[in-house]
């Protein structure tokens, strides 16, 4: 019985480690870096603007809508992402997948580089 328990524990340990190898390998094929042990790899500062039904949301509405730890500066919703700006893109895409007539614009600068604009409109 104790042998069985020990084997079960070893199988679980093996699975935990194997899953990490898979997620690390998977991160090489996508832009996101979840579960990839990527600390402070790409630091991005970004702004989000949202238009719904032809109306532009004010910055406070954007902060409440996305809850990504955004802050308001100069009436614009700002954010910081420490691993990959693709995390913000993928979240916005997910959050607005079922929203009609919406345009989300994320303007970001990664590692102090030039501003890149990403737009989402389902």
């Amino acid at each position: 019985m104790s042998r069985l328990r020990a084997n079960w524990r070893l199988a679980l340990v093996g699975s935990i480690l194997a899953v990490q190898l898979l997620t690390v390998a998977h991160a090489r094929t996508v832009d996101t870096r979840y579960l990839a042990w990527a600390p402070y790899d790409q630091i991005s500062f970004y702004e989000i603007e949202v238009d719904i039904d032809g109306r532009t949301l004010d910055a406070d509405e954007v902060v409440v809508r996305y809850r990504l730890g955004l802050w308001v500066e100069d009436d614009i919703a700002h954010g910081r992402e420490n691993r990959a700006i693709a995390h913000v893109h993928s979240y916005v895409r997910r959050a607005e997948a079922d929203t009609n007539d919406i345009v989300v614009t994320v303007s970001s600068s990664t590692n102090g580089g030039p501003v890149e604009v990403w737009t989402w409109s389902p």
Partner: peptide, 30 residues
């Protein structure tokens, strides 16, 4: 030990494939 090896190995992998790490851009900005 394997856990720590995976963590450090993956961290190195993420950096070595990032051009901003290779050319010093990330470190300069950071």
């Amino acid at each position: 030990r394997i856990q720590l090896s995976v963590m450090y190995g993956a961290a190195a992998l993420n950096k070595v494939f990032d051009p901003d790490w290779r050319d010093g851009t990330f470190i300069e900005h950071w």
